[in-house]
């Protein structure tokens, strides 16, 4: 347990949170370039789409784990969504709304622990809640016309599982890997490295 960090955001907090989101925007862009042959296949296979869902939700959880301030997860996912609206741009403004809803999920998890715990269980819950946000949004907005039992519910559940596994575990692992490189030395997440 660390002390809660609720004071004012430092400039470095704002910038690094935004930069994490931006970097993921670029990584997703590069992914599109590299795998543009394979991506349409994902689109046609709804199950793989839901299984991969967690990848897009990593920035929210990572932002919360690294910055450790109220609003970090939300801000990170909002910036990430705006970047993808600017880069991919095919989904337009709705992406931003969707990003906010997903960001609220991760934010709620960190808030529930009063911004004091940033261990694996917290990361898993943050991942799950982000996935819940995404699943609820898709359940109503995009999947409304599909069969409930054979599609909408399994899709939503898969999304949550994927978010927990990929965004939750993934972001937690990534935070530790980043801390080892020394880039997080100015964040509490990086200083725990020496304590370990």
């Amino acid at each position: 347990m660390t002390t809660p960090t609720t004071e004012r955001w430092r400039t470095i907090d704002v910038i690094v949170a935004a930069v994490i989101a931006v970097a993921f925007g670029v990584i997703f862009w590069a992914w599109g370039l590299l795998w543009n042959v394979a991506t349409p296949a994902f689109t046609f296979l709804p199950a793989t789409q839901a299984i991969m869902y967690g990848v897009w939700l990593i920035p929210a959880v990572l932002g919360g784990l690294v910055i450790r301030r109220p609003g970090a997860a939300l801000f990170c996912e909002a910036v990430a969504a705006t970047v993808s609206a600017l880069l991919g741009s095919e989904w337009g403004g709705i992406t931003i709304l969707q990003g906010l809803i997903q960001g609220f999920g991760a934010e709620a998890a960190f808030a529930a622990f009063r911004y004091r715990s940033f261990r694996l269980p917290t990361a898993l819950i943050a991942g799950a809640l982000t996935g819940l946000g995404a699943a609820v949004f898709d359940f109503f907005v995009w999947n409304g016309a599909y069969a409930l039992g054979s599609y909408r519910i399994p899709y939503a559940l898969l999304t949550i599982v994927s978010a927990t596994a990929i965004a939750g575990v993934g972001a937690w692992t990534l935070t530790r890997a980043l801390a080892r490189t020394g880039v997080l030395d100015r964040f509490p997440a990086g200083r725990e490295r020496t304590a370990i």
Binding site: I15, V16, A18, V19, A23, I27, L174, V183
Partner: peptide, 24 residues
């Protein structure tokens, strides 16, 4: 791809840290 992405992320955070210093 994974290792390039990780390097990019590390570089981006480092750049962000310096950018924050320059902005301050």
């Amino acid at each position: 791809f994974g290792s390039t992405a990780f390097t990019l992320l590390v570089g981006a955070i480092r750049r962000g840290t310096r950018l924050a210093v320059a902005m301050d």
